[in-house]
C-alpha cells in the first residue's frame, strides 16, 4: 500500500468522524440557544461551541457575529472553514476518491452520495426548521459510512488506518469538549452544591450523545465527577478517551505486525492506552484536569504524526 493511500484512508475516516461531531455540536448549541436562562433571556453559548469544534480562532478571524445564524452557517457550510461539515464531507470524499480502489463499494457509495446530496443543498434554503433534520441526516450518513466500513472492509492495513483516523478524531473531539468546560467539572463545583451547573453537565454529555447512556450506566443524577469519569475513563463509553486509546493501540499494533515497521507509533499508542487504563480520577484532578486534557491532546496528536512518519505519508 502506498504511503499516500494510508494517509488518504486516515484522513477520510477522520473527516467523516468530524462531520458527525460537528453536527452534534451544532445541535447542542442550537438547543442551548432555545433554553431560557434565569435572567429571562436566552443562553447563548456559541463561543464554547466554536471552541469545542476547534474553530473559534478561524471564526473570529472571519469577523462574523457570534449569533446562531452566523455560527451555524460557518460550521455547516463555510468553504473556508476546514472543519465545516461541508469541508469535512468534501475532504473525506476527495480522500476517498484518491483511494477509491482501497474502499468497498458500500463505503464509497455511502460517502459519495452523502457528498453529492450535501453539495446540492442551497444554504440559503435551510431555515431554522430544517436545520435539525439536516444535522440528523449528517449523523446518520456518517453512521452509515462507519457501518459500511465495519461490515465490508477487509481487515488489512487499510482498515487499521481508517480505525486510527476515526479514533484519533473522536478522542480529539471529546478531549476538546471537556477542556472547554473543564472548570464546571472541577471537584470544587460539587462541593459548592453546583446544581446551577446542571445544564452545563448536560451540555457536555449531549455533545457526545451520552445523556441516556450516563443515566443507564450510573442510575443517578448528573454529578461532575461521574461526568468526567464517564467521558475520560470508562471503557464502556464509546466516545471516552479511554475507549479511543483502547482502539488506537491495537490498530497500531496490527499495522506494526503487518508491515514489520511502525515502532515509534506503536510505542506511543501502547503507552497512551496503558496510561489511560491506569489513570484514576483523583490523581487527574490533583494534577489538574486542564493540564491532563492538554497532555492527552498533545499525545494524541503525536501518535498521528508518528504514524505518518512510520508509514511514509508525512
Amino acid at each position: 500500500m502506498l504511503g499516500r493511500s494510508a494517509s488518504s484512508l486516515f484522513w477520510m475516516a477522520r473527516y467523516m468522524e468530524r462531520a458527525e461531531n460537528i453536527a452534534r455540536l451544532i445541535q447542542v448549541g442550537h438547543r442551548i440557544s432555545l433554553t431560557p436562562d434565569s435572567t429571562g433571556g436566552y443562553r447563548e453559548d456559541w463561543k464554547s461551541t466554536l471552541a469545542s469544534a476547534g474553530c473559534l480562532a478561524a471564526f473570529e478571524a472571519g469577523g462574523g457575529k457570534l449569533a446562531a445564524a452566523e455560527v451555524q452557517h460557518f460550521m455547516l457550510f463555510d468553504r473556508d472553514n476546514p472543519s465545516s461539515i461541508r469541508a469535512s464531507l468534501e475532504t473525506a470524499r476527495n480522500n476517498g476518491r484518491a483511494v477509491r480502489t482501497a474502499l468497498t463499494r458500500e463505503m464509497w457509495e455511502a460517502m459519495n452520495s452523502t457528498w453529492n446530496e450535501f453539495s446540492a443543498i442551497d444554504p440559503a434554503g435551510v431555515g431554522p426548521g430544517a436545520m435539525a433534520e439536516l444535522l440528523d441526516w449528517v449523523r446518520q450518513r456518517s453512521a452509515q459510512f462507519r457501518g459500511a466500513m465495519l461490515g465490508s472492509l477487509l481487515r488489512d492495513e487499510g482498515f487499521h488506518f481508517c480505525q486510527l483516523g476515526t479514533f484519533a478524531e473522536r478522542a480529539d473531539n471529546t478531549a476538546r469538549i471537556l477542556d472547554v468546560k473543564y472548570n464546571v467539572l472541577l471537584p470544587a463545583n460539587a462541593a459548592l452544591g453546583g446544581e446551577r451547573n446542571q445544564h452545563q453537565w448536560d451540555t457536555i454529555l449531549r455533545s457526545v450523545s451520552a445523556v441516556g447512556a450516563y443515566r443507564y450506566f450510573y442510575r443517578d443524577q448528573l454529578r461532575p465527577r461521574q461526568v468526567a469519569e464517564f467521558l475520560m475513563l470508562r471503557p464502556e463509553m464509546p466516545r471516552s478517551l479511554r475507549f479511543c486509546s483502547d482502539f488506537m493501540a491495537p490498530a497500531l499494533a496490527s499495522l506494526a505486525a503487518m508491515t514489520g515497521g511502525g515502532a515509534s507509533s506503536f510505542a506511543l499508542g501502547e503507552a497512551l492506552a496503558a496510561d489511560m487504563r491506569a489513570a484514576d480520577l483523583d490523581t487527574i484532578m490533583r494534577g489538574g484536569l486542564h493540564e491532563f486534557l492538554g497532555d492527552f491532546l498533545a499525545r494524541n496528536a503525536a501518535i498521528a504524526l508518528a504514524a505518518a512518519s512510520d508509514y511514509h505519508f508525512d
Binding site: 502506498l2 504511503g3 508491515t259 511514509h312 505519508f313
Partner: peptide, 22 residues
C-alpha cells in the same frame, strides 16, 4: 497501484514508490 508523481522517487538508478513498508 495508482500513483501520483509525489508517490514516486528516482533513487539508486531505479524508480520507486513510497509505500507503508518503505
Amino acid at each position: 497501484e495508482l500513483v501520483q508523481g509525489s508517490d514516486l522517487v528516482v533513487e539508486d538508478g531505479a524508480l520507486w514508490m513510497r509505500t507503508i513498508r518503505g
